[in-house]
Amino acid sequence: MQTTLTVNGTRHQLDLDPRVTLLDALREHIGLTGAKKGCDHGQCGACTVIADGRRINACLTLAVMHADAEIVTVEGLAEGKTLSAMQQAFLDHDGMQCGYCTPGQLCSATAMLEEARAGRASHVTEDLEGTTRLTRDEITERMSGNLCRCACYSGIVAAIEKVAAE
């Protein structure tokens, strides 16, 4: 069926089998392979993209459900050649090894900071009605939807702490 996807500010007119997930639409039909397919079942977070400001698993949603959405993928985080603060911090703190989970980690971390700024609580937040402080425990809990088998969690957390403090 005909559908439109707006990705990183560009509109794409697509004719898709309704079975095509948002992830496969990005990777196979638009050619943006930054978002990764690690499990295809919402169990790893490698496919994380930002849809209307919210991080989601692109593998567990259909492309045709996002006709009105603004999608941001890892390819849309930098401004031209200038990396986003989060991308740069990942480089500075070596928040990656094989790199396969990295796009998902970056999209997740970017959106996570906005969630925290908006005062959203997490499982480890002491007071549901208090203010949100991004402690290390808060960051690790909020980033636990993104597996990293190389286990760069130390670097990832350090990178996020740096950006959060800016």
Partner: peptide, 16 residues
């Protein structure tokens, strides 16, 4: 030193 393939990895341009 910074991982030299890091930029490709953080921008999504590394091709698997």
């Amino acid at each position: 030193m910074e991982r030299r393939d890091g930029r490709d990895k953080v921008t999504g341009s590394a091709c698997y």
